[in-house]
């Protein structure tokens, strides 16, 4: 049976390679210095979606992203790798959203899409590492969730059942849940397949539907900065207080004298 799959993907600044110019002198983030990338765990999410599509011919994958117009790049990347369609949610009043306002907005867009069996997201986005949006979207849609998923083992649309393996602290769990459901996928899950050349050629100039706040009938009080309970009170640049320290070279004499000093003071040994 064919499935309607929605994948939530975010374009994020690549915080894995933060250089010294990542911050402006005013203490704000210098986005220009950080390349924008497909949030890594969202690629793992996409792969789980593609596997479901492989196993259930006729299924469709719709990618959904909220961000600046440039964020449509992740939609295109998803199409190159096998997704069918993409929708960008982008509008001025949506800016400055925290996870709660983001999840409200995504949930409104999902309600507009209407027909779905499963929503797959990454576990967390590397710009904040919050892992909040997936469960918050689930709650707003009145669905349950399977978080920290390693693998979707089976999905039976007729029986409305999904079985997945997930990580828990210190172990693993296999759980069975109902459909529709929200699944969040771990970075340790199967990596995403690469682009398909034919799809790249066919979709090079693909344009995407863009929805604004009005299109998804968003309550102005629940979106963007206004709809975000969290406020940043202050940001502080980090200045480590330099300690008094001893600097040594890698010479045999220096290394041995350090070892001896630490042993004599019973610090080691």
């Amino acid at each position: 049976m064919s499935l309607k799959i929605i994948v939530l993907a975010k374009q994020v600044p690549d915080t894995r390679n933060v250089g010294p110019d990542a911050m402006t002198p005013e203490g704000t983030v210098n986005r220009a210095a950080l390349p924008a990338v497909f949030n890594p765990e969202d690629l793992n999410a996409l792969e789980q979606a593609l596997r479901l599509k492989d196993a259930n011919p006729g299924s469709t994958i719709t990618m959904l992203t909220m961000g600046l117009p440039k964020a449509a790049e992740v939609l295109k990347e998803g199409i190159f790798r096998g997704a069918d369609d993409g929708i960008l949610i982008s509008d001025r009043p949506l800016g400055g959203a925290d996870t709660l306002a983001t999840s409200y907005t995504l949930a409104q867009a999902i309600k507009k899409i209407g027909d779905y069996d499963i929503i797959i997201c990454g576990r967390q986005a590397i710009d904040g590492d919050t892992a909040q949006v997936g469960p918050q979207v689930a709650e707003k849609l009145g669905l349950t969730q399977i978080t920290y998923t390693e693998e979707i083992i089976s999905l039976d649309k007729a029986a409305k059942k999904i079985v997945a393996k997930r990580h828990i602290d210190g172990g693993v769990e296999t759980v069975e849940g109902p459909l529709p459901i929200v699944v969040t996928v771990n970075g340790s899950a199967a990596p995403c397949r690469v682009r398909n050349v034919k799809r790249v050629w066919a979709n090079k100039n693909r344009e995407f539907t863009t929805w604004g706040a009005a299109d998804i009938e968003a309550d102005p009080a629940q979106i963007g900065k206004v709809g975000s309970p969290t406020n940043v009170k202050a940001v502080k640049n980090i200045v480590f207080k330099a300690k008094e320290n001893k600097t040594l070279t890698s010479s045999d004499a220096d290394v041995e004298s350090l070892i001896v000093e630490l042993m004599e003071s019973n610090t080691i040994g």
Partner: peptide, 23 residues
Amino acid sequence: ATVIGRDLGPRVSSALNSGLTAD
């Protein structure tokens, strides 16, 4: 900020419309 806390916290914050800060 465990697997359980990060599964539960966002749902509770969403249901009560309150802010949540991770880690």
